[in-house]
Design a binder for these strands. Sequence first.
DNA 1: CTGAAAGCGCTTACAG
DNA 2: CTGAAAGCGCTTACAG
Lengths: 335, 335
Amino acid sequence: MQVTIYDIAKMAGVSASTVSRVVNNKSTVNAKTRARILKLLAEHNYVPNESARELVKQSSRLIGVLISDIRTTHHTNGIYFIEKELSANGYTCLIHNTGRDENNWVAYFQSLSQRKIEALILVGSIYQTDLVREAISLYLPSIPVVISNGYMNGENIYGILSDEQGGVTECVSLLAAKGRKHPAFLMNQVTPSNEKKKLGFEEGMARFFPEMPVHTSICGNEIDTIAAETRTLLQRHPEIDSLIYSEDLLAVVGLRTLADLGRRVPEDMMVIGINNSNYAKLSIPTLTSLDNMLYDVSITAARNVLSLLSGQRVSRKMLICTEIVERQSTRKESE
Amino acid sequence: MQVTIYDIAKMAGVSASTVSRVVNNKSTVNAKTRARILKLLAEHNYVPNESARELVKQSSRLIGVLISDIRTTHHTNGIYFIEKELSANGYTCLIHNTGRDENNWVAYFQSLSQRKIEALILVGSIYQTDLVREAISLYLPSIPVVISNGYMNGENIYGILSDEQGGVTECVSLLAAKGRKHPAFLMNQVTPSNEKKKLGFEEGMARFFPEMPVHTSICGNEIDTIAAETRTLLQRHPEIDSLIYSEDLLAVVGLRTLADLGRRVPEDMMVIGINNSNYAKLSIPTLTSLDNMLYDVSITAARNVLSLLSGQRVSRKMLICTEIVERQSTRKESE
DNA sequence: CTGAAAGCGCTTACAG
DNA sequence: CTGAAAGCGCTTACAG
């Protein structure tokens, strides 16, 4: 059985109130008594019962973090920073792996509400749906909710976005500057974030290749489907001379596929990824990638939550600039 | 303010006990009353207060999960399976990112004890230390503790290990069969798991290359240090003709470094990684890798926790076999 | 500086 | 089938 405040009180010959005051470092306790209690506390390895504390204080110091797939490196990198910042401020993260199917999400909102979380961070634009908005207004109507790389309307909802749309337009601009004629865009799945990237691509095409047809395509998350979709696209449109993928991982599969087809990168085909991940740094050839500033987005999400919890004003929607990191996959011989 | 069982009771004209019975689906409630209460519950969006429940039931349905760096893909893949299995059984995971420095770990054990977790999973052999053993006996002396890919003595400690030692010995055997003469082994850092891999390497050398010197080396976790250490090793021992890295990620950096040096893989140099990760499948050339059966280890850790929580016997130490997945980086032309 | 008492929201024998 | 009561471990005005 666990040692309670009452056990210690009995041993010290004082009341539970006094022990509580010592545990919580309240000022008004006689120095000698305090010392005696402190010693007892340490000896018996006292640890306060958090449930009891929460119940009376009506505060859990718990922050919910929802992620659709904890295996996504890009997202776990973000969570790493979020967790660090939050736990440095005395909060505990409740990280949940919700899956990609929104029909299974409600249970998580209920569970988080039951645990009395004090704020919620949604990692990824995938949570930008009406169903989520409803669940929030039903189960978490009065705590701050911050979306990392997304935004929704809502009394208590805040968003931090990476300007991927503008970034992809710049990628198209880069390809134009390199003398490419027929860029194409591939994305793994339809998410709000990918829709924005696609929009950025279309904008870039309209601006830099006004006469050209716009090729975009969805290639899934599996190595096989990505490779197959890449092959199909190139077969159908042999004129394509440059590819932008919605994620580095896809682009790396693309590099493999091109190698298998005997196409040289960057000579025959230029390739650009997004995320500026390890994959981009380690591939052969190394991969030009749009850095969507994950660190900044994540850390800002965490800091905004902390600000909101301490009652400060925070802007509802922030946009963070992206940056192209150029590597071999778009570098011409002469450079 | 939140709706309590008392609010509902008042509205329904019954006692809190009855409402509690309905909420918890206890048998003995009049059908009509139950229906009325159920309706009220739904209308008012009642969610039980978990702290209050925990306090009276002395059970949190919380399971702690400690990981040294949540950015390590290999570990998050494992956690993905663990979380899925555990939450399917009604438990909530408290995932903490402890960092690699064991001096910061005690706080996590205290916090988990405070939250009254019912079991603990340690992900990674890195937690196999005396300090951890002490913290467990101090703060979590009576709940099941399961180490994923590790083992320690302790009343309440259980381990599931991947037989990486035997696996690496087989890798050496494979290199011998391919006619290689001078294998070397590189690991990122000193962990119990890496020590075992090294032992397996030394065993393999003793068995298949009894006359040869044994080259092992530590290369760190950063791309730069891995590349530098690889270069140094090859400069110092130009006779080396095959490399085993303690992780795929390192091996992929190795492949890049070899490409930069103009060494052909597998002709001039064979390369083997460990983990059988995406990196191995996507690199150019594709990478032969020791599959340490992460899925099996993780899922077994989760299942063992569930078994222990339901009072079943579980073996203290389980060993799971590994398997080499051969790809281009060790395949001879003729094959 | 300190203690008695009430209360946080819930569950569960116990009595009826 | 149902209610009154006690209790889980803690905090915090309030009175002294």
